[in-house]
Simulated assay, not measured.
Amino acid sequence: MERSEEPVVVLSAAACWELVAGVTLGRLVTRVGEIIEIAPVNYVVDGESLVFRTGSGSKLSALTINRAVTFQVDAIGEDEGWSVVLHGTAHALETAAELEAVADLPLRPLVPTLKPTFVRIDVHAVNGRGYRFGEEPQPEDVQEG
């Protein structure tokens, strides 16, 4: 991310994808009825989609009920950070062609548990912000635009 003097910068879609591709852990947000769940997931970028692995359980169950998901990735440094939010549709990969397409991706479970199901999130919207940290300005020093 390029350094900016502005405290908050809107990132281009290309910049968002570049940042997301450089990180391997994000948060998957699912919704079933009124219940919203957030789970940490390791993933890889594959084109303009994300792929992760999971076992049977709440994430996979949620995706069979509501395929619309949000995925958030961020990084925080000492004096700057960024956050990217991706919206898309998730589906478990089942066909031989789908599984062959992801077989060589560098995607291994972080936790030593069985995660036989590959899931692809086809992203349809991405947005992000870059942040420069610092002291809060005094009200008289801020010019309204």
Score class of each variant (00 low, 15 high):
1 M>I: 02
3 R>S: 07
3 R>D: 09
5 E>H: 08
6 E>H: 03
6 E>F: 03
7 P>A: 14
10 V>M: 13
13 A>W: 00
14 A>W: 00
15 A>L: 02
15 A>R: 12
16 C>Y: 00
17 W>C: 10
19 L>Q: 00
20 V>Y: 08
20 V>R: 10
22 G>V: 02
23 V>I: 04
24 T>I: 01
26 G>S: 10
29 V>K: 06
30 T>N: 06
31 R>C: 14
31 R>V: 13
35 I>P: 00
35 I>M: 03
36 I>E: 08
36 I>P: 01
37 E>A: 14
37 E>K: 09
38 I>L: 15
38 I>Y: 12
39 A>F: 04
40 P>S: 15
41 V>R: 13
41 V>H: 04
42 N>A: 07
43 Y>L: 11
44 V>P: 06
44 V>T: 05
44 V>K: 10
45 V>G: 01
45 V>Y: 01
46 D>A: 15
47 G>A: 06
47 G>L: 07
50 L>V: 11
50 L>S: 11
51 V>E: 07
51 V>N: 10
52 F>Q: 11
53 R>S: 04
53 R>P: 04
54 T>M: 07
57 G>Q: 08
57 G>N: 08
58 S>V: 14
58 S>F: 02
59 K>G: 09
60 L>N: 12
61 S>R: 14
62 A>Y: 04
65 I>H: 12
65 I>K: 15
66 N>Q: 06
66 N>M: 08
68 A>E: 14
68 A>H: 13
69 V>A: 14
69 V>C: 11
70 T>Q: 14
71 F>N: 13
71 F>I: 09
71 F>C: 11
72 Q>G: 05
72 Q>H: 03
73 V>F: 08
73 V>C: 12
76 I>F: 05
77 G>F: 00
77 G>L: 00
78 E>V: 09
78 E>F: 02
79 D>F: 01
80 E>A: 07
81 G>L: 06
82 W>G: 02
82 W>N: 10
85 V>K: 07
85 V>L: 15
85 V>D: 00
85 V>W: 05
86 L>H: 03
86 L>S: 00
86 L>C: 00
87 H>E: 15
90 A>V: 05
91 H>A: 15
96 A>S: 12
97 A>W: 00
97 A>M: 04
97 A>V: 06
98 E>M: 14
99 L>S: 13
99 L>K: 15
100 E>W: 00
101 A>Q: 09
101 A>I: 12
102 V>K: 05
102 V>F: 04
102 V>D: 03
103 A>N: 07
103 A>G: 05
106 P>K: 10
106 P>Y: 04
106 P>H: 09
106 P>S: 04
106 P>G: 03
107 L>P: 07
107 L>Y: 05
107 L>V: 10
107 L>I: 12
109 P>N: 11
109 P>F: 06
110 L>C: 06
111 V>S: 07
111 V>A: 11
113 T>A: 14
114 L>G: 03
115 K>H: 05
119 V>S: 13
121 I>N: 13
122 D>I: 12
122 D>F: 07
122 D>R: 15
123 V>K: 10
123 V>L: 02
125 A>N: 14
125 A>F: 06
126 V>M: 01
126 V>Y: 03
128 G>W: 10
130 G>W: 08
131 Y>G: 08
137 P>S: 05
139 P>Q: 02
141 D>N: 03
142 V>H: 01
143 Q>H: 09
144 E>S: 12
145 G>A: 10
